[in-house]
């Protein structure tokens, strides 16, 4: 089974959980920008959480399926058509051999995830099938999709519901496997709500001058046009330290808010360099980083202070909810196959 790329979209990349364990060699973890959306796409497609799916940015690709497939789309609400008919989001969807999936724009948000049952089966590089665009590392020579690429799709060992198990003779419109249900996406996608992102203190938060500390939590920032998978640059109030700091490079983590001398804050994202020498004025809480990843250039960003205890508690709650949901989806998919064909 494979998928042919007819049009690549703006920036479509294979992504999984990334490649932890190599940061000491200068190789970042990278991986999906909105990791919960990737996991839920995999769950809905019947894949393990760490399967490789496509991360789609702002404008989607057009893909031809060379065999029957089951897909799921999550993340930003994208215009999705299978042979011209609208396909549902946040649900498992059957795609027939030869069908063309045309993914268009997003009403809001920045990244959608397309999982295919069996996972995108490109050869892993250093343990990950994800592409680190900035480091030019990963399958496809570390680049985004191009027209003419052919993406192999794997087979899940314990596939409860093989895509080709039920065939009808007549071509049919896109068919949700269970037309009566889809996932409630609201806990997993912000939509137009612009809730503030919670920020933890960092090494140099206390070096901000009083006006800048106030602006960080009371001002409104906008995602700058040159934001990408490496970092989100924030237009808006310029921030300043009480005195300039000359720092020795230290390691960074995704979510670190850096302040270069220009005064324009940068939030480090999935492909951030493993180290950097700019002052660190905060860390976006792990639960809120996927929400930032869904903001597009021009979108508003506001911050609210949080504590390490609260951030850990929210992360635990989110992990718990995700795991429960993944288990519930797996049970449902398994029941449907045992419940027989409709």
């Amino acid at each position: 089974m494979s998928i042919e790329v007819l049009k690549p979209g703006l920036l479509t990349t294979p992504q999984d959980r990334g490649r932890p364990g190599y940061a000491q060699l200068g190789i970042g973890r990278a991986g999906a920008m909105d990791a919960p959306a990737l996991r839920l796409a995999n769950a809905l497609a019947g894949n393990p959480a760490d399967a490789c799916a496509l991360e789609i940015t702002l404008l989607g690709p057009t893909l031809r399926f060379r065999a029957d497939a089951v897909i799921a789309l999550t993340g930003a609400p994208i215009d999705a058509r299978i042979d011209g008919a609208r396909a549902p989001l946040w649900a498992p969807v059957r795609v027939r051999a030869g069908a063309v999936l045309a993914l268009g724009g997003m009403r809001h948000g920045c990244r959608s995830y397309l999982a295919v049952r069996g996972g995108i089966a490109l050869a892993p590089v250093l343990g990950s099938r994800g592409v680190d665009v900035n480091a030019a590392l990963g399958p496809l020579d570390g680049r985004a999709l191009r027209a003419g690429d052919v993406l192999p799709v794997g087979t899940n060992a314990d596939d409860p519901h093989p895509a080709s198990s039920r065939r009808d003779d007549a071509p049919s419109p896109p068919q949700a496997i269970s037309p009566d249900w889809s996932l409630d996406f609201r806990p997993w996608f912000d939509g137009e709500a612009q809730r503030p992102l919670r920020v933890l203190p960092a090494t140099h938060t206390c070096n901000l001058d009083a006006a800048s500390r106030a602006a960080l939590f009371e001002g409104t920032f906008r995602v700058a046009v040159d934001s990408n998978r490496v970092g989100y640059r924030l237009d808006g109030p310029r921030l300043a330290l009480t005195a300039p700091l000359e720092l020795v490079s230290e390691a960074s983590v995704a979510g670190t808010v850096q302040l270069p001398p220009s005064g324009q804050a940068i939030v480090l994202m999935a492909e951030h360099p493993v180290s950097g020498g700019y002052p660190r004025i905060g860390h976006v809480a792990a639960v809120d980083l996927p929400r930032l990843a869904q903001r597009r250039p021009g979108d508003a960003v506001r911050f609210a202070a949080t504590t390490l205890e609260e951030a850990r508690r929210r992360l635990a709650e989110r992990e718990h909810r995700l795991q429960r949901l993944e288990a519930a989806i797996a049970t449902r998919l398994a029941n449907e196959v045992h419940g027989g064909a409709r």
Binding site: P20, A23, Q24
Partner: peptide, 26 residues
């Protein structure tokens, strides 16, 4: 522990989400 990153004068230990979400474990 997922990553251990030495730099000039400091060392970062980066942990997985299960550890990061658990104050007692950290």
């Amino acid at each position: 522990l997922e990553d251990l990153v030495p730099t000039y004068a400091s060392l970062l230990l980066r942990f997985d989400a299960a550890a990061a979400a658990d104050a007692a474990r950290m």
